[in-house]
């Protein structure tokens, strides 16, 4: 398509129609126009408003004053009203830690699962994939609340452990870190499995045999010839889990308890409970910058858009 474009500058033959720049613009306006307008009005504008809000000041009664200030970001960075106060910084560290551990656990679980899936006959592979898609599209709130039931001190899941003697009776893991991580991995694992599976399915297995013929041992052949081939799927999965998991709200809220106060909790608190919108907005802006950085990095590391859109199941 590119080579034809060069013949007449700005003109091209596409889908059997000769079209110039104005033709493209005119058709884009009618076709993409409504979508662009909608996304501008209801995605770009709210994000712009929240960015603006993060630089606003608050009056003595907590009302928002339209005065430009960096105070909200300074507060997040540890400059509290009574000297150094790292509590907001700790929220970031904790969130990134939760996101990171979730991502690692999902990678470790998704790899063997993906290798298992591609070893199945085609029909069963489709079933296995559908079995991943169902939890992926099931409401996170329901699944999280089910973990509350399962992980309760006298709940279904812990009773066997108590009977065997691995756990003390009455000892509980919910609410707490362990319950939080179980809920997080259960929620995000399908998002990792789909792109990793797509990559594993495309592996050229003969390169492993070639490596073996050239004298590599089994392990080297696997790590140097097979694993690099699934890097695109792995990258897509990591980005698809790490970014949203860092800002997860429902799971820390229901399974974590007070010790696992993360970004999601902080946002809910500032927006719904204390109504400190500028501070909440500053949290959002940090999160947005984090996501934008992750996406840009991912764009740099991938060759084309198809590699970046793994969720097109």
């Amino acid at each position: 398509m590119k080579s034809r474009n060069k013949k007449f500058k700005g003109w091209s033959v596409e889908h059997g129609v000769m079209m110039g720049r104005r033709g493209h613009l005119w058709r884009s306006m009618w076709l993409s126009g409504p979508g662009i307008a909608w996304m501008t009005l209801l995605l770009v504008c709210p994000l712009a408003v929240i960015t603006w809000m993060s630089f606003m000041d608050r009056g003595p009664n907590g009302e928002i004053v339209a005065r430009f200030t960096f105070d909200n970001f300074a507060l997040l960075g540890g400059k509290g009203p009574f000297g150094y106060d790292p509590s907001h910084l700790e929220v970031f560290v904790r969130s990134i830690f939760v996101g990171g551990v979730t991502t690692c656990a999902c990678v470790l679980a998704a790899l063997p699962l993906a290798f298992f899936m591609v070893a199945l006959p085609n029909r069963l592979q489709r079933v296995a994939l559908i079995m991943i898609a169902i939890p992926l599209w099931t409401n996170v709130l329901f699944r999280t609340y089910a973990w509350q039931i399962l992980l309760a001190p006298d709940g279904l899941l812990l009773t066997p452990f108590v009977k065997v003697g691995l756990m003390e009776p009455g000892q509980h893991i919910y609410p707490g870190w362990r319950a939080l991580m179980i809920g997080m991995v259960g929620c995000y694992l399908p998002f990792m499995v789909v792109p990793v599976y797509t990559s594993v399915k495309q592996i050229d297995w003969t390169s492993g045999d070639i490596a073996r013929d050239l004298g590599a041992d089994k392990m080297t052949a696997f790590t140097n010839a097979i694993l690099p081939q699934i890097q695109p799927g792995l990258m897509a999965g990591i980005i698809f889990v790490f970014l949203p998991a860092t800002g997860q709200f429902v799971i820390p809220n229901l399974l974590g308890g007070g010790k696992t106060f993360v970004l999601g909790n902080a946002l809910e608190q500032e927006f719904v409970v204390t109504h400190n919108w500028p501070l909440g907005a500053a949290y959002s802006v940090f999160m947005l910058a984090f996501v934008a950085a992750g996406l840009l990095l991912h764009t740099r590391m991938t060759r084309n858009r198809q590699e970046r859109e793994p969720m097109v199941l």
Binding site: L43, P46, I50, I239, F240, L243, P244, T246, G247, Q248, F249, L263, G264, L267, E268, F271, G280, A281, S284, M287, L288, V291, G294, L295
Partner: peptide, 9 residues
């Protein structure tokens, strides 16, 4: 990719 609570707020 944006956490839903950021979009929501």
């Amino acid at each position: 990719y944006v956490p839903d609570i950021v979009l929501a707020s």
